[in-house]
Design a protein around this nucleic acid. Structure first.
Lengths: 171, 171
DNA sequence: GAGTAGTAATCAAAGCTTTGATTAACTGCG
DNA sequence: CGCAGTTAATCAAAGCTTTGATTACTACTC
C-alpha cells in the first residue's frame, strides 16, 4: 500500500505501519485504537448532524443540551454542563443561541442569585420530541450494523475505556 | 435514581430509562450505544488536547493535519481533507494557521494551477516527531484499561460500525 | 477556438469551544 | 459586621467547522 492508494480507512493501517518503522518506541496498537475511535465517532456525528439536525436549523450541541434538559428536567447551567459534558462557557454561549431561538428559557435561581435556572420552553419541548424520533432512527441505522451481542460488547468496552481514572476532565 | 443524583455517566442510564417510558417507539439500546460512543470519544479528545497539544500551543486538529502529512507525505489540500476526514474548507482554514506558524508550507501544484501542494516544513517535521511520543504515551494510557484482546475486539467492532454504508460523508 | 460544465481553493458569516479575565454573589473566619 | 476567598456566569479573543458564494482554472462538447 503506497501513499497514493490510501483512503480514509486504510490511512489508519498506513499510519500504524509507518509509525512502527520510524518510531519503534511507540505503541502502534494503542494508536490504532484511538485513531479508529476518533474517526468512527466523527463519521457518526457528521452523519447525525447533517442528516437530522442542520436541516431543522439546529446544531448537534444544541440538541444535546435540549436532550439533557428533556431527560433530567430544569436545572442550573452549571449542572447542565456537568451532565452534558460541555464546559460552563460552552453552555453559556449555547444557551444564548437556544434562548434567542425560543427553545430554552433562563430564570434567575431563587436560592442563589448568581445562578441561572434553565428549562425547556413549550417550543423546546415540542422540538425535542419530534426531532428525537428522527435522531433515534439514525442511531438505529448505525447500531444496525452490529448484532445485539456485538452492540452490548461495544458498549461495555467503551464504558471500560470511559471509566479510565487519572485523565483530564472538563471543569 | 432521581434526576438530582445524576452524574455524567449515570445520565446515560437515566436517558435510556426515561426515553423508554416516554417514547416507547424508540430503540433505547441504539441510543445508549451512540450516547456512550460520543461521550467516551469526547473524554479522550479533551484529555489529549488539554494535556498534550494545547500546552504546546497547538490544537488537536492541527496535530491531525500534521500527522496526515507525516504519514503519507506531501499532498494536495483536497487529498489531505480526504485522508484526515476534514472538509476542504476546514483544511484551508487550518493550513492558514499552520502555515502562519511555520509548520506547513504551501506550494502551487505544477500540473494543476488551481491546486495547492502541502508539505511539512522542517519545523513541522520536528514538531510532530517530538509531540508524537507524548501523544502516544497518552494513547497508551487510555488503551491500558483494556486487555490486548479487549482492545482488538473494540477496534474490530468500531471498524464494523465505521463500515456502515448509506450514511452521509463529508465532501 | 468558444462556450459550458465541473473542480480546487478561498472568502464571508455564523455557530461552538477554548483560555483568560471580569463581574456579581455566596461563604466562612475573625 | 467586615473582609478574604470561592463560585456562577459572562465577556472577549482566537481557533475550528459549517453552509453558501466567489474566483481561478481545467476539461469537455460543439
Amino acid at each position: 500500500m503506497t501513499a497514493q492508494d490510501l483512503d480514509f480507512w486504510s490511512f489508519v493501517d498506513a499510519a500504524v505501519e509507518r509509525t512502527r518503522d520510524r518510531l519503534p518506541a511507540i505503541d502502534p496498537e494503542a494508536m490504532r485504537l484511538i485513531l479508529t475511535l476518533y474517526r468512527v465517532t466523527n463519521m457518526v456525528v457528521y452523519d447525525m448532524e447533517s442528516v437530522v439536525h442542520r436541516p431543522r436549523g439546529w446544531s448537534y450541541p444544541g440538541f444535546r443540551l435540549l436532550f439533557t434538559l428533556w431527560v433530567a428536567g430544569p436545572m442550573e447551567a452549571k449542572r447542565a454542563a456537568e451532565l452534558s459534558g460541555m464546559s460552563r462557557q460552552a453552555v453559556s454561549a449555547l444557551v444564548g443561541t437556544l434562548s434567542r431561538d425560543g427553545l430554552v428559557s433562563k430564570a434567575p435561581d431563587v436560592k442563589d442569585r448568581r445562578a441561572v435556572r434553565l428549562s425547556l420552553t413549550d417550543a423546546g419541548e415540542e422540538a425535542i420530541s419530534t426531532a428525537f424520533a428522527t435522531h433515534n432512527d439514525r442511531e438505529r441505522l448505525w447500531a444496525g450494523t452490529l448484532s445485539d451481542e456485538e452492540r452490548d460488547t461495544l458498549v461495555r468496552l467503551l464504558g471500560k475505556l470511559g471509566a479510565r481514572e487519572g485523565v483530564r476532565r472538563r471543569r
